[in-house]
Computed example of a mutant assay.
Amino acid sequence: MIIAKNIHKYYDTLHVLKGVDLHIQKGEIVSIVGASGAGKTTLLQILGTLDNAAKSDETSLTINGENVLKMNDKAMSKFRNLHLGFIFQFHQLLPEFTALENVCIPAFIAGKDKKETETEAKRLLDYLGLAERSHHKPNELSGGEQQRVAVARA
């Protein structure tokens, strides 16, 4: 599912990731642990295509059989929308939209049918115990409810 080879990342002269190799199979659960400043978040951002690794001929990042490092920005955005889901530590919900609308946004961006998208979003919110809160905006939800909306959106 994810094969990363020789991943490097620099911030000016600071070499944060020094040739990381990683192979994550479908269904496998992986933890990334390390000291503060070790590069855990940087690695996750690169694996999630939110940041770029230093490019070389020996560097590759293959997700679901696609070498995403060879994609242009538009193709990468489309790939990210269709194949990756993110649950951020601080939710990143859009405050002007309801829980239901926040869950629907990625599907709307992908051009999916509105009725089908809303039906699936309602199903997910119900599954996560948020059916009665679907029309509330993020500032009207508890932190735990916001996190569950983020899970449904992912």
Rank of each mutant, 00 (worst) to 15 (best):
residue 65 G to M: 10
residue 65 G to D: 05
residue 45 Q to P: 00
residue 57 D to T: 07
residue 119 T to F: 06
residue 27 G to N: 10
residue 6 N to K: 03
residue 119 T to L: 13
residue 134 S to F: 10
residue 137 K to I: 15
residue 99 A to Y: 12
residue 65 G to Q: 09
residue 139 N to Y: 13
residue 115 K to N: 12
residue 23 H to E: 14
residue 71 M to S: 06
residue 40 K to S: 10
residue 54 A to D: 04
residue 130 L to H: 04
residue 73 D to E: 12
residue 120 E to R: 13
residue 86 F to P: 06
residue 33 V to A: 11
residue 10 Y to D: 06
residue 21 D to K: 12
residue 137 K to E: 11
residue 147 Q to A: 04
residue 117 T to H: 06
residue 38 A to N: 01
residue 79 F to R: 00
residue 150 A to E: 05
residue 112 K to T: 01
residue 93 L to M: 12
residue 16 V to L: 05
residue 12 D to E: 14
residue 109 I to Q: 03
residue 38 A to C: 14
residue 31 S to C: 10
residue 105 I to W: 04
residue 90 F to Q: 08
residue 151 V to E: 01
residue 3 I to K: 13
residue 13 T to M: 03
residue 98 T to V: 14
residue 147 Q to P: 03
residue 52 N to D: 13
residue 8 H to C: 01
residue 137 K to D: 06
residue 6 N to F: 02
residue 111 G to Y: 02
residue 10 Y to C: 08
residue 120 E to M: 09
residue 137 K to T: 15
residue 116 E to A: 14
residue 84 L to C: 09
residue 108 F to N: 04
residue 109 I to A: 04
residue 34 G to S: 11
residue 17 L to Y: 04
residue 20 V to H: 01
residue 19 G to R: 00
residue 149 V to Q: 03
residue 84 L to E: 03
residue 41 T to M: 05
residue 84 L to V: 09
residue 78 K to H: 10
residue 27 G to F: 08
residue 95 P to A: 13
residue 131 A to P: 01
residue 93 L to E: 09
residue 128 L to E: 05
